[in-house]
Design a protein around this nucleic acid. Structure first.
Length: 962
DNA sequence: GTATGAACGTA
DNA sequence: CGTACGTTCATACG
């Protein structure tokens, strides 16, 4: 979940009521939930103190108070040391004891915050928080209160009655379910009083309490409704037949014990009266001090003060903190958006004088500004930069950054509270002084999206060497799974600042020629500048702390520059050839469609799965194979193929399916070619894709508008499309260079598996060699099947492939796949250990890391949902491998680009397809360029195994294949 | 007009 | 019942 999205309560209790309301909070439960709902890395202080649970606790509590308006409030906590429950059941909460250190250190902070807020918290040795809650609820009940219990522990359900409601967090922390007697009956089919009986039967995994095996909520409820209570059920245990009855009888002692343990104590001596549990007497000074320590911003503080400052016992509030929230001013933590003072720049002279008055504010140390990468050696990896962001220039530009046709509207340079706004068009004198400024100061600048900035600057004839910091790239490194579409979203996510949507014309993607897009108002631009500065302030320390500065400055930023060049140049296509290919596919598709319609007997839309389902499974009565995830019958190619093979005796169905399959394939290809035709720039006959550098969670690039990373390559007819990608004017050929088995080589290196390393060093046919090791037969006796099975196994490794999946893919029995897997891991034991260790460390640390320190976080590893957890395990297995391969390719691109530039050749990289680079080669440069690019790729990184690169050359992309 | 699901292309 | 993406079309929604 997003760290800053306001936590809202599902159904606020807005009924005006004369009854007083008491809110009791299970402090541990709330802290626990907050800790796991919010990414700890966004919430920690410079000194490394985690604060996510404190922040979540404060926000959530404020939210509930705003929604429910309780008159009285208390928070309960567990105390260290066991309770009577541990004596009854030694393993009680055994699985929970492993509360992360980072959470435990926050509990005292939460209590300190509660004290500052004037909220009573209660802990009692020998009892759990739940017992305190039960006691308070019981006291409240007696004294005529309506009690709300905020707890994520289902044991609290036994307290529910007409006057006690449990607020129970749902899947999303922010969705609170109001558990009333009726809600309990609806969900569990038993009354709240019966709930502990049900829980005793079922057990509670979270508390390490075993129930009756095979008995869940359903059976437990059925029995309880039959026999009325657990006692009565136990007496009649012999009457229950079947496996479940047997299981019940075997575990009846455990169940009785469970029931004793889950009964909450309602008469703990707390030494307080409900009437004393007021709140709102806030000690503002103490709160300020705490929030300063925690580095919470003014926004969080005023949010909390707004709620607690209005409590019923706020007698002192008016005098004590009436104005202090404002008089302190916005906290200088970067959270408040200081409005910037704009200066309009219209000439070189304007800019010169603005610059001279503002230059003194910039204080970036030379060693930071002049950061250069000698080579990708380890000694640079600890470089820092985030400490300098507060005293740097912010440079931003607005306009249309589409590669090949970008236009600049406005350029801005800001520092401190001041911003210079430069509107296009820019005259030559101003352009020159701007260029001089950029040449001198690029290393002291923060930007948001260096690649896009280069496109915009380029539209005005400007260029900018590497900046110090890029907040877009930094945000991506900090949280690769989060993707903001614009600055406002990034601000919301990272800064907890809500920027209201400005009414503005639709994003100018399809703007008409004669209708110039309305320029964004200055306020929007000043706001954007402030956001960029705020992002740098927040993200800089995170990047430094994780030692990812090197990754940003030596990898991501330089690769941005390379990508900008590739996008700007584009890939030349042969328009005639594209048209011819399109026409051919279109004719085939039309023919197949006509044929399909004849067999079907009606002109259905062959692209509508719904209409296909009707024809295939209703009209023709075919037996469906698989279902889609939404429950309908799939009509995907695999299903159609198997239907086709099973319908040889049904002429009509067989004919229809054959035509349909043919239509699917050719129509898809037609559509792909048409997309390429539409995406071709008329003026230069080239296609300018956009590479997304901050989208793929593993660190890979992606390609959009159009996607040039998914041009068909697997079968001959699709591959034809590649023949339309050609060398452009002034160039003679295309060269394609790709890595072979990078991911496997990375696994060999990282696992240190001697056998696999040897397989790569031998230089033989890799898969054959591996097969011979797995099957223990000489290489020349390996059959085709053996080779392909081992090949599939090797590739499946990095995906967390299951034996079932392997069997499916190879068309063999699961037993055989299992045997293959065992033999494989017998041979390559360290690979197995390595893959296991990846998941283990992800579970321990919360994230995985690539060779170069790129992280990816996996909160879903903590999920109680098996499907979600298993998926997260596979992703955690894959991320460092796919990610390291992506890192290596990025480094290779930077090296290759630099090598080509330093050699003074005109040949250039135009495409990247994950493990392949396509280079447009100028006449007479073939040999030199081949050597430079393959060397750059082969030596991007030094692994225990060689990196193998193969290059091919040809007049077009298809012919360049090798 | 926007969002979703199914399908399918790549590494 | 392997990972990572982007695009298209149909369909359902407001």
């Amino acid at each position: 979940m997003s760290a800053e999205s306001p936590l809202t309560v599902a159904s606020p209790n807005s009924e005006p009521s004369t009854t007083r309301t008491l809110l009791v909070v299970d402090g541990h439960s709330l802290a626990f939930r907050a800790f796991f709902a919010l990414p700890v890395d966004n919430f920690s202080t410079q000194t490394g103190q985690a604060t996510n649970a404190v922040w979540g606790f404060a926000t959530m509590l404020a939210q509930v108070i705003d929604a429910e308006h309780p008159d009285h409030l208390a928070v309960s906590f567990d105390v260290k040391g066991g309770t009577f429950r541990n004596q009854l059941l030694p393993q009680y909460k055994g699985t929970r004891e492993a509360a992360p250190e980072e959470l435990l250190t926050q509990l005292p902070l939460i209590q300190r915050m509660l004290t500052a807020l004037g909220v009573t918290y209660i802990e009692k040795p020998g009892y759990e928080g739940d017992d305190i809650i039960a006691t308070l609820a019981t006291m409240g009940d007696r004294e005529g209160y309506h009690t709300l219990v905020l707890s994520g522990d289902r044991d609290a359900f036994q307290l529910i009655d007409e006057n006690v409601t449990v607020l129970y967090p749902g899947h999303h922390f922010k969705d609170l379910k109001h558990m009333t007697p009726q809600a309990v009956v609806d969900k569990y089919k038993v009354t709240p009083q019966q709930y502990p009986d049900l829980a005793a039967l079922r057990g509670e995994t979270a508390d390490n309490i075993p129930g009756v095996p095979g008995v869940g909520d359903g059976y437990a409820a059925k029995w309880l409704n039959q026999y009325g209570s657990l006692d009565s059920l136990c007496e009649h245990a012999d009457e229950i037949g079947g496996k479940k009855g047997e299981a019940l009888r075997e575990n009846i002692e455990q169940v009785r014990l469970n029931r004793k343990v889950n009964a909450l104590v309602r008469n703990v001596d707390l030494g307080v009266a409900i009437d004393d549990l007021t709140f709102g007497d806030v000690d503002v000074a103490a709160l300020n001090e705490l929030f300063k320590d925690l580095e919470f911003g003014s926004r969080t503080r005023s949010r909390v003060l707004k709620t607690f400052g209005n409590g019923v016992a706020a007698s002192a509030k008016a005098t004590r903190n009436g104005g202090s929230a404002d008089s302190n001013g916005p906290a200088d933590t970067g959270e408040g958006l200081e409005p910037l003072r704009p200066t309009a720049i219209a000439s070189a002279a304007d800019f010169g004088s603005w610059l001279e008055t503002h230059r003194p504010q910039v204080a970036v140390p030379d060693e930071v500004a002049q950061f250069t990468v000698r080579d990708y050696a380890d000694d640079d990896r600890h470089a820092v930069c985030g400490n300098a962001v507060d005293h740097a220039w912010t440079i931003a530009a607005w306009g249309d950054a589409r590669p090949g046709r970008s236009t600049l509207q406005t350029l801005a340079v800001a520092v401190g509270d001041d911003a210079a706004l430069i509107a296009a068009p820019i005259d030559e004198a101003l352009r020159e002084s701007l260029q001089t400024f950029l040449d001198e100061e690029h290393g002291r600048a923060i930007v948001h999206g260096y690649k896009e900035l280069l496109h915009l600057l380029g539209a005005a004839g400007l260029d900018m060497d590497l900046p110090m910091f890029d907040t877009k790239l930094a945000g991506y490194l900090a949280q690769p799974d989060f993707h903001a579409d614009d600055l406002a979203e990034a601000a919301e996510h990272f800064l907890d600042i809500h920027v209201e949507e400005q009414a503005r014309p639709a994003q100018g993607t399809l703007d008409f020629e004669d209708e110039a897009p309305e320029p964004e108002p200055d306020e929007d631009r000043l706001r954007d500048l402030a956001i960029i500065h705020g992002l740098a302030h927040t993200l800089g320390p995170i990047i430094d702390e994780r030692e990812q500065c090197w990754l940003m400055r030596a990898v991501e930023l330089p690769v941005s520059r390379v990508l900008h060049g590739m996008e700007h140049i584009g890939a030349a296509v042969d328009q005639q050839r594209l048209n011819a290919i399109r026409d051919e596919f279109a004719a085939d598709a039309d023919m197949a469609q006509t044929m399909a319609w004849q067999f079907a007997g009606s002109d259905i839309n062959l692209q509508s799965p719904k209409q296909l389902q009707k024809v295939l499974f209703e009209d023709m009565g075919l037996k469906p194979t698989k279902r889609t995830k939404s429950g309908s019958y799939t009509t995907n190619a695999a299903a159609l193929q198997s239907l086709y093979e099973r319908s040889l005796d049904n002429e009509r169905a067989n004919g229809f399916l054959g035509a349909l399959l043919r239509h699917r394939e050719t129509n898809k290809l037609r559509q792909i070619v048409q997309t390429l035709i539409d995406a071709t720039n008329r003026s230069d006959s080239r296609i300018h894709t956009t590479y997304e550098q901050t989208v793929a969670a593993t660190g890979r690039l992606s390609s959009t508008d159009p996607n040039l990373q998914n041009i068909p390559n697997r079968n001959a007819s699709g591959r034809e499309i590649r023949s339309a990608f050609v060398a452009g004017e002034g160039y003679s050929s295309l060269m394609s260079c790709d890595y072979s088995q990078v991911e496997l080589r990375i696994m060999a290196d990282l696992s240190g598996d001697e056998a696999l390393i040897e397989a790569f060093r031998s230089g033989a046919d890799f898969h054959k060699y591996v097969a011979s090791m797995v099957y223990k037969v000489p290489v020349d006796q390996i059959t085709g099947d053996q080779r392909s099975h081992v090949k599939a196994m090797s590739y499946g490794l990095a995906y967390g492939l299951s034996t079932y999946g392997l069997a499916q893919q190879l068309g063999i029995a699961p037993r055989e796949a299992e045997a293959l897997k065992n033999r494989y891991f017998d041979t390559f034991g360290k690979v197995h250990d390595y893959l296991e260790s990846l998941v283990a460390s992800a579970r321990r640390d919360g994230y995985t890391e690539t060779i170069f320190g790129r992280r990816r976080y996996f909160p879903a590893l903590q999920s109680t949902n098996r499907v979600a957890r298993d998926a997260a395990e596979r992703a955690a297995l894959n991320a460092p491998i796919q990610g390291s391969a992506a890192d290596i390719m990025k480094i290779a691109m930077i090296r290759a680009d630099r090598a080509l530039a330093e050699a003074g050749v005109t040949s250039r990289i135009i495409l990247q397809i994950h493990d392949e680079l396509v280079v447009e080669v100028a006449p007479g440069e073939v040999e030199q360029v081949t050597a430079l690019v393959s060397d750059a790729m082969e030596h991007a990184v030094d692994l225990a195994v060689p990196l193998d690169v193969s290059c091919g050359l040809g007049a077009d992309w298809q012919l360049a294949a090798h």
